[in-house]
Design a protein around this nucleic acid. Sequence first.
DNA 1: GTGAAAGCGCTAACAT
DNA 2: ATGTTAGCGCTTTCAC
Lengths: 336, 336
Amino acid sequence: MTTIKDISKVAGVSVTTVSRALNGYSDVNEETRKKILEIAKQLNYSPNTLARGLVMKKSQTIGLLVSGMNRESVKDNLTFQVLCGINECVSVRNYDLILFNTDSTRQREKTYTQLCRERKVDGVIIQGIKLDDPYLKEVMESDIPCVLVDIPVETNTVGYVTTDNVLGAKKAVEHLIELGHQNIAMVNGSNQAFVSKQRLKGYEIALKENGIKVKRNWIVDGEFKEEMAKEVVLSLLSSTPEITAIFCASDLMAMGALKACQEQGLVVPNDISIIGYDDILLASYVTPSLTTIKQDMFEMGYEAADLLVDMLEGKAKKRHRILETKLVQRESCTRI
Amino acid sequence: MTTIKDISKVAGVSVTTVSRALNGYSDVNEETRKKILEIAKQLNYSPNTLARGLVMKKSQTIGLLVSGMNRESVKDNLTFQVLCGINECVSVRNYDLILFNTDSTRQREKTYTQLCRERKVDGVIIQGIKLDDPYLKEVMESDIPCVLVDIPVETNTVGYVTTDNVLGAKKAVEHLIELGHQNIAMVNGSNQAFVSKQRLKGYEIALKENGIKVKRNWIVDGEFKEEMAKEVVLSLLSSTPEITAIFCASDLMAMGALKACQEQGLVVPNDISIIGYDDILLASYVTPSLTTIKQDMFEMGYEAADLLVDMLEGKAKKRHRILETKLVQRESCTRI
DNA sequence: GTGAAAGCGCTAACAT
DNA sequence: ATGTTAGCGCTTTCAC
């Protein structure tokens, strides 16, 4: 393995000069620089990032803490899309990505801070974390620059990227109301998820603004799972047959709701309208295809990485970015 | 940041002893070890992996070279599944993962070997690479331990994980033959993809073994893309209306074929049978749902990582692993 | 414009 | 069982 020492020998200069030349410092003779660059190329030199990181105390590396990379999480590739976005941005801005695992059997063996310090990552992006996750507390207390996806925490070192979930949910419910619906139920996700709280808020606002009373027992929890959503919708349908539309806090749950309706012999959208959230890939493939609120997860990832690097480089004016959502009309909703 | 030096001071021993104690060497007094461990905990010590990597010349890190992490690759989450599998295994076996980007704008700025050497990765997993990719040649010439997903290259330092694609394709075509089909076309992927060559072989073998003649003009190329497959199937249908079944080398292309048939007013499977390959998530959601050859990409990733770590630790008996495929019968094929 | 020297945090001979 | 010492490859004062 070639080192700067090797280069310095061949070039007949000191390692200092080699280092400076290679790093583009100005105080080095153009002749010398040229020669050094030449030799480095010939010797097929690549810098040792470990050594550099050791002395500079930073590694040009961003840590990635992702939950939802297990065998079960195949159905919604939201996580993957976020990953792709991060990957794209990070490579443009010349960082590498190191993947920390959070949901294996070895989980929680190391704390968040340990993970980061050991690897000397410059910053971290966290995705798929719940509000009650112990990591979250650590994040807020630590001084490691960090960007959260879909959790609005802002401190001196922590920022976040999210969509306007209140507005998104509001759009969904307003769409149903415009179609003439008044009896609108909601299948929410986890009550420990930030987005759930927000979407519930949007649901309530939309109803109130339109003079419709919010009924507590029309709001059920599907844990963001297809099967669970199916269950709760089944019981919802039997207990409150007067509902004509359901707003689901995720497409996956909307698919569960779809199944529940079909099982009850209800035709969607003729008998009952269903609107989802996310616009996952499957949304356009299920029958009937799902009307939904689209969020661009690729962009979410991209912006998260972009914000973090901005923060690292002291270019971030504000430490949060809010992305837009969009109503996508398909077949699962109709005028009453 | 606490270092072993800090610990050594507090404990009143040398850094060597601290190092040895922390790394579980046997030649250290139990009393001393206990005290050191205690102090390390109190001081909230975490080791600096950069420093360790620098001296040990290895980093307990596995590099990941993935193509297909861009905005377009959202439809088949095969890549993601492989990633999840790798991630799972790697964390069990106590390595971290570093993600190298290969298809950004900055692509090819650095060579494969540079990427690896700079980061001092112990080994690499490569996924989604084509046979004519310049990286591949480099891999074979380099001495960095490497496992390839779906490319059968084996050297002293390179191994691979794949499925038996010949057998898989054979299963698919035999299934069609059993259903009474004789006029079976094939939509293949890229001729620079290893799996394509194999699947073509399986197709030909199945036909020959059943006394059916292989017709060159019944074999078309869809570039593994849905749109492209639709195009070529459209022209196939008009030029050779006698075909009763199509074997597609991927589910995505099978979906394209499906669309082509529908556009031509053909009912699948009544008028024509279609069988895919992969068993992607969408396969069970399109209408009609796709009969296909399932490969378990999560396992593929898991085994790739497992094999690599075995190689790194000198435990690998053989440097390749072949996984099984399975026929999944759904609605897109029927008896003639 | 260039070099000598120190040091980042750690491991590993080689003593003792 | 423990300490001394050197050194991994790099950057960075400080001096010339």
